[in-house]
Amino acid sequence: MAMISMTVNGKTHSAEAEGRTLLVEFLREKLHLTGTHVGCDTSQCGACTVHVNGQNVKACTMFAAEADGAEVTTIEGMANGDGSLNVMQQAFQDHHGLQCGFCTPGMVMSATKLLEENPKPSEQEIRDYLQGNICRCTGYHNIIKAILAASGQDMPAVAAE
């Protein structure tokens, strides 16, 4: 066991962890931040997506020890200061960008990163960027709409795929 410290959503946390402890396990089981989900546990589905030092990563495929000293942002850190939903979260609610909601934390984390890199993405660019985030409910239709809306763009009729 080793002591691991990281800044999560602006607050410093320390806890003991084994070498094999995954970042997602550290967040959920040591820090009790259970908004980050474990879907497939094989780095396919993206439900565990968080930001580490400003980059989106799959927290199920990174060891906690490798985030020692890092700045981590999880879905719990996304709301506005007053606790209200931020622009992306609100857009997911407004456009029904979720049904069961299991993939949503990862979707929001990935979509947020996309708009940082590309503030006005096309529908195709959104679909490409979300290749690593799988949703089994929505058919992606309303997720795409939500992200277009959050980027301040008009929403043409988005064809279901």
């Binding site: 980059q55 989106n56 799959k58 990174m62 990935s110 990163k113 960027y129 290749q131 690593g132 985030n133």
Partner: peptide
């Protein structure tokens, strides 16, 4: 390669 999150690692 992979997807954006995989490419960051």
């Amino acid at each position: 390669i992979g997807d954006p999150a995989v490419r960051n690692r």
